[in-house]
Amino acid sequence: MSCIVLTGIAGTIGRLLARQLHLDHEVIGLDRRDLPDRPKDVKVYKLDIRRKRCENLFRRHKVDAVIHLNIMHDFRKPQAELHGFNVLGTQRLLEYAANHGVRKFIFLSTANVYGARPDNPQYLTEEALLLAGEGFSEMRSLVSVDMLVTSFFWKNPEVETVILRPAHILGTAANGPSAYLSLAHVPTVLGFDPMIQVLHESELVRAMVAAVEPGRRGIYNLAGPPAAPLSALVKYLGKRTLPMPYAMLRALAQRAWQMGVAQVPPPELDFLRFPCLVDDSRARRELGFQPKLTLPQTLDQLKRSPAYRQGGRRS
């Protein structure tokens, strides 16, 4: 029974994780959003992680572990706010963790920080450079935060730091990949059909619970079931792809982004052309991570989610 601070508890992954963790641990949530349906024994502080008052939480409780999920992925937000919230917030949390004797710090990053590039090796290991920010300024804050926690991992050996870089997460979460695959016609780039790794959110939650175990530390890619081409995923979902020449798709994406219609900026199209696949053998070896769902099962789960049935309209 240890005390875990869970930031971003009001998000989909946060709620799922809290439901798992509160059975064995004391869970304290930290989020600036509301969390209506929480387990009774979970305390939630409605605070912005950038606020100094968050430190009181660490003074009041003997915190053993911090799980940091409170990262803003909304690329529509101004760069300054994205960067401020993500980098500054994470920096503060790391400070509290170091100053208040927290033994474990778990951070949820993403495999997208490696970037989709034509010269990527088929499977990227944890040692690969984080190049997603190149030509994709909106990704930069996510890369910075990952690097920030990585340097904390090296500088503070007394804190067991775990960084998870999962592939595209599918499920009930209203995230980019789920919304993209929920579209009635899935736009793709003509002449390209990259291999894609998807991971169901329940698998991610299991990996995070495994990371809480004492002694586990390091940077881990999470990939889930074997990769498959984008077109095969779309076909399994019973939908059609809408292939468009890159130049045309890019122009459309550019216009949509400027008009504020699109949720993703044009550089994200590279993920529809080039591979960004990760090798998760380290997580399998050291965290005992073993995906339970096969690829078809993962896609079936996606089909069942309410957001998918609405055709990918974002919440």
Partner: peptide
Amino acid sequence: NEFGYDPF
């Protein structure tokens, strides 16, 4: 894999 593609 299930869809008939190898890891590459």
